[in-house]
Design a protein around this nucleic acid. Structure first.
Lengths: 96, 96
DNA sequence: ATAACGTATCAGCCTATGGTGATGTCAGTA
DNA sequence: TACTGACATCACCATAGGCTGATACGTTAT
């Protein structure tokens, strides 16, 4: 999942889709990437459940799925929280 | 930053360090990876500001920096939030 | 002083994966 | 029906980046 978000072009697509639903042609002009490239990345995002496709005539609108993003946001937040808690205790495993 | 977290071994190291400060030898046995490999990944994590090194004698303890994780957690959370808000409005950019 | 140990660095290999071009498919249109 | 335009799929290429072995460095122990 993080691996999916890690690609710069995919990250750009995700931020664009966060602000409004867009179809492939919009994403192509916004990013400047080739249509083939955008389409490939959209497939990856779809399979990861980060994005939803809604065909409308010969266009295909894409919309971000907030739940997927929230999941990883929470996961990272919890990690940070437990790290903070543990570091207060200052326990340390001995070496060898 | 996301790219740094995207590697499976690095993600494992980060989750381990979230629970307690560990030195390289611990990370080596926990992950099963070679020492060289772990050390290389630790360097990447250091340069990304995700992790802090604290040399102690001939050992080096590593500790997670919660702020760095929080930053990306917040970023993803905001993205999800704005997506939710926008989708309520239902506005949609026209094609061509 | 020398040996042993924990760790870091570097160069090279090799695989995973992003970019591209050719092509297929389906919906609207003349 | 034939054509165009939006989008998807596939196969190929090239590069980025992870893994490894050799090695260097600093610290502790003998």
């Amino acid at each position: 999942m993080l691996r999916v978000l890690a690609d710069p072009l995919r990250a750009r697509i995700v931020t664009l889709l966060a602000e409004e639903a867009l179809c492939t042609c919009h994403l192509v002009e916004e990013t400047g990437a080739r249509q083939t490239n955008v389409s490939n990345h959209l497939r990856v995002l779809r399979h990861a459940g980060l994005v939803e496709a809604e065909p409308s005539g010969r266009f295909t609108y894409y919309r971000l799925r907030p739940d997927a993003l929230d999941a990883v946001a929470v996961w990272l937040g919890d990690l940070a929280a437990t790290a903070r808690a543990v570091q207060g205790e200052g326990r340390r495993r001995p070496c060898t």
